[in-house]
Each structure stands twice: as structure tokens, then as C-alpha cells.
Design a binder for these strands. Structure first.
Lengths: 353, 353
DNA sequence: GTGAAAGCGCTAACAC
DNA sequence: GTGTTAGCGCTTTCAC
């Protein structure tokens, strides 16, 4: 098999549809129809069909994908736009999407936005010009209006991880609010009362906003006070320094809360590092729970409790929704807005001894 | 800027080069030449040029990239093929390449092979049919002959991370042998004598083979014996179980070595987990050093000593080599084979107290 | 059942 | 300096 494939490869010369036609003394049309599986539909003679197919095999014909794409406007390529493909959450999603795409004959073009709107916009435009058949996108800071326009133009696309109010586009997100509540309630059940939160700006990103909302709601329901000093808000591009400074200050004032809830895996890792640096004991001095679980939270010191997102499911649902649009199947109002449940992995960082 | 870009976006109708030509009463050729910056070269009147450019602006003309690609055979797209884009080493490389590509006007198509030769071959073929301008590839199990053929055909490509003997293609790898020696020597300098190695099959992958070789060489130079029982060799797809079993057995026989050298970041993580599971103290019972450093080795328990690969540099050099080939600049025999130095990050897991 | 021909949007050789 | 023309490889309408 391997050797055979390799041979095929070497031979890959440029044989076109008209070469086949000429060889066989038939028309290009016929060849095209057979190749595209429309033989039956057009009532083409079974023998003729076989002759074509055999010749295709013999000459090892491979269609010129560019010509095909040019002609049809279809490229069998989809675009994936996220803030940073090196972030573990997104790289896992990308991997899963790539697998599904491969199985369905699609290639995947990847773009990282760095949470930059202009870059994101340029990337969407470029991908459209490249005539990708669809887009799966975790949008930084565009808005409902923008995607609605895209939707009205019937350009297949699915938003993941983040979405906008009053948006008619398809989307797959997770239940951020419940996730945050689950996190806070777990802390409360362990007896923590003074709870702080470390979040990231820009805060209008829906996933962040909903997590923040969930936090406040859970605190309110438990009739716990939210101390603004314990709510640390850091910018996307200077996380580490800002977290260090804030924690140092609280620590020197002997004013750390009993627990921190961090809003994504990067914040969690950074927070862990900085607390260790300050020799703050986890969880005895300060407990730590994070949104978004990653493999290594299992063997850090201490291991870290985290809210887990169903990465594979997100990818699958998003891909299915996209494929549906590409195949021109209607996506009903009910189908197009998917919200998936989260779960919690409880580990040492929140267990009171 | 944002609003403006959005407006442009909405307007994106299909205006072609002949629309411009017609509007202006000039020929398509002229428009094409101006747009492609060949006005001077063809001695085109500055005024005419301006008229064209203005019209392009006014009508918000955007070239049809598919038509362009079809005509020229250039797509401003490069392919990146690795074993698994969700692996942190590769996702970081992909990210860096993507950045460089973006800055140079290229898009990136990503493919994961799962170390499967047939899949890899199919992907290379597909990308070639899609007429990507070049390929950066960490090849699983192809061979020098294959890539030499590719090279003879002047298809731009660069191998990273792994390469083959007698290969004429460009490649960027790291100094695996020295890295392994550095690791072993560090262990020796800390007083460890009984040193084991955990490696992965298929072992003919050059990076793995070289690391193994470096290990043996360093042991020999130090006149230390290599105990075959301490050399654990696990398959790519069943790492975890095999490592667990081997360690359990050695542990129950009270025959663990004083230190383990693991050949990639996955092996390191898995080994750490399993040793912890067995309540083996690191480094007092067994020390641990890994090839390939990742962020979180800094805050595991204990933190882990590791050989660091210059990820950004690998990406940069590979991209530059690729660009050079795409631009038809000669890559000399000296330039085409790059081997980058590694470094060591010493942490708790190897420090004898 | 099959073929002729047009044309997608662009580039480039050649003509004037 | 600028225009004419052919054609990349494919799909698709329409004619026979």
C-alpha cells in the first residue's frame, strides 16, 4: 500500500480531463459527468462509463482542484479562526475539527487573531476571498450585526466559545454561567466564604461576561459579600505582571481571600505560579479553582480543581452545524443555538483538610 | 478604522477586472498590470495608472484569488504537516509559522498525521493538488528518497524536527544528540549512576534515534553501565499503559534506577504521573529529566528538569528556508541543513539534596 | 446518450 | 504606452 501510494505520487504529472477525452475519443463533458458521479443521472452508457473510469485509473488522473474551485466556487476547505492556536483549549478544538474535516474531505486553514478585531476582520475577508466553504470562529470583538449580515448572505459559519445577543448565526457555546456557579458553590460547600475572582479584559467577550455573571449570582444566592479588592481584572496581553502585582499587594497587606476563582486556564496557571512564588499555601492559605481544565492540572503541586469544557463535543457540534449549512440543509432556529453542559473535576487545590 | 473595514466588508460584491476596464474604457491587460504593480516596468502613463487605482478603490475591487491561483499556480498558501497539532510542541511551532506567514501574506493549512505514513502521503498529495506554494513538515516515516524526488521537482518544502540521511531537501532540526548527552551529564554531575531511559517507538524517527544515541554515548564516556531492564520502550499509541506496567514491575522488584531520562514531553508527563502514583519520591528515590520543555514543568510537583528546544527559532528558520525556495532563490548546500542548539532548564526533579 | 461551445477571472505573449 | 487575444481546466447549458 505504502509503496503503491508512493509510486502514484511520483507519477503525478499533469493529465487533464481533455487528455482523457482525447484518448477515448469522447467529449470532455462526458468525462466530467462520469468523474463527478453524474453518469446515471444523465443516462450514460454503463460501458462508456467504465471506459472513462478505467482510463482515469490508468492515466492516474487527478482533477485540478484550483480549476474546479474557480469554476464552482467550492474549495472543500474550511477556515478556523481563534484567538491563539497555541492555547491548549483551541489547539484541541482545532485538532478535533481537523479530524472531522479530513473524514469529510475538507482541509482546514487556521488563523489566530490575538484578540485583535482588525486582524480578525481581515482574516475573515481573506478566507472569504479564498472561497473557503465555511468558517468556524471564536470571535474576539465583532458583533451580532456583523454576523447577521454574514448569515443573510448565506455564508456558512458557526461561532464557538463566544456568541452575541440577537444573533441569527449558528453557535456552539458552553454553559458558562452554570460553570461559574458550580465553581463558587463547590468552594462554598468546602467552607470558603471570602472568595475572589481573577478575570480578563476585554470583558465584553460573552464567555467571560457570563462567567463573571455566574460568579456574582452564586455569591448573591449564598448571601456572601463580594469584596472588590479581591476581584482582579487583568488585560489579555499583560496577564502575568498584573496578577503578580495584585497578589503581592494583597499578600503584603495580609488581605488575601480564602479562595480564588480564575476564569481561564492561563489565568489559573499564572495564579498558581504566583501564589507559589509568594509561598502562599494552597489550599490551606488560599484555595484555587479554575475555569477550563487541562491535563496537567492533575499533577501540579497541588493538583487543581477545574471546570471542564466538553472540547470534543463543541468541535463535533460546530462541525455538524457547519456541514449542514454547506450542504444547504436548513438549520432551524432551535438547532442553531447550542449550549453544552460543563462538569467539575475536584482535586487538591480546593479540598479543606 | 474598524467601522471602515466593516463597511468595506459589506460592500464586497463581485467586481472583476473587466468591470474596471470597461468603466475606464481601457483594456483588462492594463488594469491587471497596474494592479500587479508592473506599471513602471511596462512604462504605463502615471495618470492612467492613477485612474485605474482610483477606480479600484472606488469600486472596492478585490481580485478573485481562485482565478488568480488557477492562472498562476500560486496560492499564497503554505501547508504545515505534523503528527499532532494538539501536542504543545507542534502547536507552538504552528502558531509561530502562522504569524510569519500572515506577515508575508500567506495562509496556513494544517494537517495532523497521527504518525501514519499513508495519511501523511495523502495529505502531501492533497496539498500539492491544492497548489500550496510550499510545505513545512515533520515527517513520520517517509524517507530521503521520497523527499529528494520532491526536491528534484523543485517543490518548496522544509523538514522540521526530523530528517533523513542523504537527503537533499532543506531541514531544520535541533541537536538531539548533544541534548541527550547534556541530560545524562547533568544527571551524572548530580551523582546519579544508575540511569534508565524511557523512549518511544517507532525508533527510526531521526529525533528519537539521535537522542537514544546521545544517551548511550554519554553513558559510555562516563564508563557507566546501561542496564537493559531500565530501558523502557513504549509504542506511540499505548504510552500510558506500557509505562505504568514497566514502572510497576521495576518498583515491585525494588529495581528502579536512580534516574530516568525521558525522550519527549509526553513521556515525561506520563512518567511523572506514574511515579507519583507509585509514591516514588522524586528526586530522592528516582530523579527525572525530560527532553522537550513545556511551561508547566515549572510548577508540577516537583518541578521538572528538561532540555529546551528553541521553538521560535525552529519556526523562523524553517519559514525563511521555505520562503527562499518559493521566491526561487537558491538554497545552498550549506544553508539547507540547519541544526539548532538546545539548552537545559534545571529544576527540582534532578537536584540531589 | 453524447457533444459543442461558452465562460468563470485572470495573466501574458505578442501586436500595434 | 496600450490593446488583442489565447488559454489555464473545469462545469454546464443547450443542441443534436
Amino acid at each position: 500500500m505504502y509503496i503503491f501510494a508512493k509510486m502514484n505520487f511520483q507519477m503525478a504529472k499533469k493529465v487533464s480531463i481533455s487528455d482523457i477525452a482525447e484518448c477515448l475519443g469522447v467529449s470532455k463533458t462526458l468525462v466530467s459527468l462520469v468523474i463527478n458521479g453524474k453518469a446515471e443521472q444523465y443516462g450514460i452508457n454503463a460501458q462508456t462509463k467504465k471506459r472513462v473510469l478505467d482510463k482515469v485509473e490508468e492515466l492516474n488522473y487527478r482533477p485540478n482542484l484550483l480549476a474546479q474551485g474557480f469554476r464552482t466556487g467550492k474549495t472543500n476547505t474550511i477556515g478556523v479562526i481563534v484567538s491563539d492556536i497555541a492555547n491548549r483549549f483551541y489547539s484541541r478544538i482545532a485538532r478535533k475539527i481537523e479530524d472531522l474535516a479530513w473524514k469529510n474531505g475538507y482541509s482546514v486553514v487556521i488563523c489566530s487573531t490575538d484578540e485583535n478585531v482588525d486582524k480578525e476582520l481581515q482574516q475573515i475577508k481573506l478566507l472569504q476571498e479564498r472561497k473557503v466553504d465555511g468558517l468556524i470562529i471564536s470571535s474576539s470583538q465583532l458583533d451580532a450585526e456583523f454576523f447577521n449580515t454574514l448569515n443573510d448572505a448565506h455564508f456558512p459559519h458557526v461561532l464557538i466559545d463566544r456568541r452575541f445577543e440577537n444573533m441569527t448565526s449558528s453557535s456552539v457555546v458552553i454553559d458558562n454561567q452554570s460553570g461559574a456557579q458550580m465553581a463558587v458553590n463547590h468552594l462554598i460547600s468546602q467552607g470558603y466564604r471570602k472568595i475572589g475572582m481573577i478575570s480578563i479584559t476585554p470583558q465584553h467577550i460573552s464567555s467571560i461576561r457570563e462567567r463573571v455573571h455566574g460568579f456574582y449570582q452564586a455569591m448573591e444566592l449564598a448571601e456572601l459579600e463580594v469584596n472588590p479588592l479581591w476581584n482582579i481584572d487583568v488585560p489579555f496581553d499583560n496577564m502575568e505582571n498584573e496578577i503578580r502585582n495584585s497578589l503581592q499587594q494583597l499578600h503584603s497587606q495580609h488581605n488575601l481571600p480564602e479562595a480564588f476563582f480564575t476564569l481561564n486556564n492561563n489565568l489559573t496557571s499564572t495564579c498558581l505560579m504566583q501564589l507559589r512564588e509568594l509561598s502562599v499555601k494552597i489550599p490551606s492559605d488560599v484555595a484555587l479553582i479554575g475555569f477550563d481544565d487541562v491535563l496537567y492540572f492533575d499533577f501540579t503541586n497541588p493538583s487543581i480543581t477545574a471546570i471542564e469544557q466538553p472540547v470534543d463535543l463543541i468541535s463535533e457540534q460546530a462541525f455538524n452545524l457547519l456541514l449542514k449549512q454547506i450542504k444547504k440543509n436548513d438549520v432551524t432556529k432551535e438547532e442553531r443555538s447550542i449550549c453544552l453542559p460543563i462538569s467539575i473535576n475536584i482535586r487538591e487545590s480546593t479540598i479543606k483538610r
